[in-house]
Design a protein around this nucleic acid. Structure first.
Length: 451
RNA sequence: GGCCCUAUCGUCUAAUGGUUAGGACAUCGGCUUUUCAAGCCGGUAACCGGGGUUCGACUCCCCGUAGGGUCACCA
């Protein structure tokens, strides 16, 4: 049954229906199609399957286009099925006149609201088998499919007819789609045979599953199945593609972090998994963080600045200092807003407010020790010139004393005086960011609080 | 329920008849300029069950079991 298209240019298509926001499963289908096309110098076609006029919405089509653009999956051709009805009509007419399809009178249309007449495909009732590139030989007995409906009327084709006609006319060589389409394949092959179209190669990729091992569905999981949710969360397009590629595929090496170009290079159909894979936001966060590390520091600072300036009166110079400690604490840009909301960054912009008792290290018996240490630290810091408040210099100045008196006893009060929080970066980093003047002021305030 | 697909640590996966069953995420310990975060080091953790085939099965075959997909005038 295999068609002789080995030497032809590879042409694939991503064919979503605009009946909802771009779904993660669709994104991965698009990704595999895109990678396969680009790797083989083939064509990647985007085809909007909007034959269902009731459910198709322009905003969903726009969401699909926006998502693909964001991911960087450029398409070579674009089609909208709603604009190709003349073509389907031509095939439908031919099918009917050839006796391979017929207009069927339906009963009980009055109660169900369904049409009195539809076009049914005349099922030859035979066994259909095809070789799936991922699963191997699959056989169906089409008898149970009966004479299935291929169009509501000569003007209104349905899914199976439109798909087969388009794949034929567009010269699709490989149909790469979700496993949920396996059972649609025999119907489509039947139609291919009826219109004299060659059979494309098929590759049915496993589904993306939820924690309960069920298909990721909008109904059950809401916005988390939509790409737009992750765009909003500040994930990187390359990380998204990277993580999704790892769901149901592996490169055959230990490499896990890939740019899109590296993915195009490494991709292979043979390495696609057969079983469904559970989506893990945890691992995706890790992949995103790895991609974050690949970005030049100044670019990261730029992104952070864009977000920070909405909350604090700050400038690029300040953000560049803050950037490394923020990067350590986020896995996507969306986490920055969370950090700000949790007031984790507030003390960089405004003097902290806290109880004097918090300054005391848990190992010290009384706050007098805290006071002594803070005072002495202040004097040590005083020797460092204004512009040279680097991590190294402050460390050099304080460390001997800290080791002598106990690191916790010296360093904790210092850190707390600067941040006012139980959790923060270490005092040396804090001093470097705050600068000498602010550091000295905050230590003096701490000393006053103790009295 | 019919038809179809699938089955290795909690999760994503490697292994293409011979391995102490490997890696990654998560988790748990430890380390670090004694809070976090990040980083580094280490630990726990898997071949669904039963039959074959074979000198030898995670790997091949069969039967179970479990999970999933699909059964529209949606796509």
């Amino acid at each position: 049954m295999k068609t002789e298209n080995k030497n032809k240019k590879i042409i694939v298509r991503f064919a979503p229906s605009p009946t909802g926001f771009l779904h993660l499963g669709s994104v991965r289908t698009a990704l595999f199609n895109y990678l396969f096309a680009r790797q083989n110098g083939g064509k990647f076609i985007l085809r909007i399957e909007d034959t269902d006029k009731e459910r198709s919405k322009k905003e969903y089509e726009e969401d699909i286009a926006r998502g693909l653009k964001w991911l960087g999956f450029s398409s070579d051709e674009f089609y909208r099925q709603s604009e190709r009805e003349d073509t389907y009509k031509k095939y439908l007419k031919k099918l009917v006149s050839d006796g391979k399809a017929y207009v069927s009178k339906e009963s009980d249309s009055a109660e169900t609201g369904k049409r009195a007449e539809v076009i049914r495909f005349k099922n030859p009732n035979k066994k259909i088998s095809f070789s799936d590139m991922i699963r191997g030989e699959i056989e169906f007995d089409t008898t149970e499919l009966k004479d299935f409906i291929i169009a509501k009327s000569i003007e209104e084709p349905l899914f199976h007819l439109a798909v087969v006609v388009d794949d034929f006319e567009m010269g699709i060589t490989h149909v790469i789609r979700g496993e949920d389409h396996i059972s649609n394949t025999p119907r489509q092959i039947l139609i291919q045979e009826a219109i004299g179209a060659p059979n494309p190669f098929y590759a049915h990729i496993p589904l993306i599953l939820d924690k309960d091992r069920a298909k990721l569905s909008k109904r059950k999981h809401g916005e988390k199945v939509s790409l737009s949710y992750y765009i909003k969360k500040g994930y990187l397009p390359a990380a998204m593609a990277n993580y999704l590629s790892l769901l149901g595929w592996n490169p055959g090496t230990a490499q896990e972090i890939f740019t899109l170009d590296e993915l195009i290079e490494a991709f292979s159909m043979e390495k696609i998994q057969k079983g469904g894979a559970i989506f893990s936001e945890e691992k995706m966060k890790w992949v995103n963080k790895e991609h974050l590390k690949l970005i030049p520091p100044d670019d990261i600072a730029g992104e952070i600045y864009k977000i920070m300036k909405n909350f604090y009166d700050t400038d690029m110079e300040c953000v560049k200092k803050l950037s490394p400690i923020i990067l350590d604490r986020i896995s996507s840009f969306g986490d920055i807003a969370d950090l700000i909301e949790a007031r984790e960054l507030e003390y960089f912009f405004k003097k902290p407010d806290y109880e004097a008792n918090s300054l005391k290290w848990k190992g010290d018996s009384d706050i007098e020790t805290t006071k002594t240490n803070l005072k002495y630290a202040l004097s040590l810091l005083g020797d460092i010139p204004e512009g040279q408040f680097t991590v190294d210099n402050t460390k050099k100045a304080l460390f001997g004393y800290a080791e002598q008196k106990g690191k916790g006893s010296v360093l904790w009060p210092l850190r707390f005086a600067l941040s006012g929080r139980d959790k923060s970066p270490d005092p040396f980093t804090l001093m470097n960011i705050l600068g000498k003047k602010e550091t000295v002021e905050r230590i003096k305030i701490a000393l006053q609080k103790i009295q």
